[in-house]
Amino acid sequence: MLKHAKIFVAGHTGLVGSAIYRKLQSAGYTNLLTQRSYELDLRQPEQVNSFFDKYRPEYIFLAAARVGGIDANRLYPAEFITDNLSIQLNVLQAAHRTSVQKLLFLGSSCIYPKECAQPIKEEYLLTGKLEPTNEPYAIAKIAGIKMCEAYNRQYNTDYLAVMPTNIYGAHDNFNLETAHVLPALIRKIIEARDEGVDEVKLWGTGRPKREFLLSDDLADACVHLMESYTSEQIGGFVNVGTGEDIAISDLARKIADIAGYQGRFVYDQDKPDGVERKRLDVQKINALGWKAQTSLTSGIEQTIRWYEQQSLHTGAIRK
């Protein structure tokens, strides 16, 4: 990518999109195109086509999506599948119609079967049943992968697909009704600390293991792939993660130690755990010259600082 190329970062205010935007800025890219959701609704084909016709982006990072944790997926399955399918369909069609040079599609590790050998290799896609709690979202993301593959095969486009593990960091969603596990834990623990509460209730058993990657590390991987590789060289899609996981109970204690919370945790075992374990095989991305640089401890420290600054300065994060 030339430094003055027109690069559209779709979803630039979100967790992943904002990290990609920061990475591109720091790398010297000067012609970044962005639109907030109220300016451009990617679910509406007329708006998407009008934007592409007007601005003619050359490269696209498709980080826009409806995302959320277990409870959000349970409550809004129709929106999770419909909104994500609509965004992907509209952007890929417009990209092809206007001859975009290259596109990177962000998926999710939830695309893999519920009962999956560990660590999870890219080849395990579609080898078993999905985890029911997020099946609509996962199906939409699988469709995104297959759309990229289909366009590449039929039209010789260059659309990459990246499947990250659980992402966290600055600009994460801390709303307890829709947040993923790590930001939800940060908020619960810090509020308990600040309010002098000696007990924090957590969902499930605490036994499931999850892998976590800082959003800035994911952004680094995405820009690396866009700068250095074609979809043909990558061969399908690629996992992005650390290759290491941690039990939710241990994660909660790690966050508490970093935040200075001395209370105890109780587990609501009537709530779902999700899959028992989900750790990605990252041999492919490592062979492509990229490896995660930020430890989980350092990443949590950075995220807590960001959360506390936002809470202190705006109060908006607690809504």
Rank of each mutant, 00 (worst) to 15 (best):
I186F: 06
T178D: 11
L126F: 13
F174S: 01
L104S: 10
A138M: 08
R153Y: 13
Q154Y: 11
K141E: 13
N90L: 15
L160H: 05
F174C: 01
K114A: 02
Q93G: 09
C116S: 08
Y168S: 04
V162W: 13
T165A: 00
M147W: 13
I81E: 11
T165W: 13
D83Y: 15
P136M: 10
N175I: 11
N173Q: 12
H180I: 09
F80C: 00
A117G: 03
L160M: 11
A170G: 07
T127E: 13
P77L: 10
T82K: 07
P119F: 14
L106H: 09
P183F: 12
Y124Q: 04
Y155I: 01
N84A: 07
E177K: 09
D83R: 08
K121E: 15
E115W: 10
N84W: 14
Y124H: 08
K141P: 03
Y159D: 03
V91K: 07
L75Q: 09
G169V: 12
A138L: 09
F105N: 02
Q154M: 10
Y155N: 04
V181D: 04
E149H: 06
T98A: 01
T178G: 05
P183C: 02
V181S: 02
G169F: 15
G144H: 06
K129N: 05
S109E: 15
K102V: 01
L85K: 05
K114S: 05
Y137H: 07
Q154R: 05
A184K: 12
L182H: 06
Q118L: 13
Y168E: 06
A140I: 04
A179N: 08
Q88L: 15
E135Q: 06
L75G: 08
Q93P: 03
V91N: 02
H96T: 09
Y124C: 03
P113M: 06
I81L: 13
I145C: 07
A138Q: 01
T98P: 02
S109L: 14
Q93I: 10
Q101G: 03
A94W: 08
L126D: 14
Y112Q: 03
N166A: 09
I145N: 08
I120K: 02
L160P: 02
M147D: 05
A161R: 04
T133E: 07
F105M: 00
P132V: 02
I145D: 13
T178L: 06
N134D: 01
G128H: 09
E79D: 15
K102A: 03
E135P: 03
D172R: 07
K114H: 12
E149V: 07
L185E: 06
D158A: 00
L130G: 04
Y155S: 07
A170K: 15
L126R: 12
M147T: 08
Q93F: 15
A78P: 04
D172W: 08
A161F: 15
Y159G: 01
L104P: 03
E123C: 04
Y151R: 03
S99D: 15
T157G: 05
L89D: 12
C148M: 14
A94F: 06
L125G: 00
G107S: 07
T82I: 12
Y137C: 02
N90P: 10
A117N: 11
L103C: 03
Q154N: 07
V100K: 06
K141V: 11
L126Q: 10
I87H: 12
A94I: 05
L92C: 06
L185A: 01
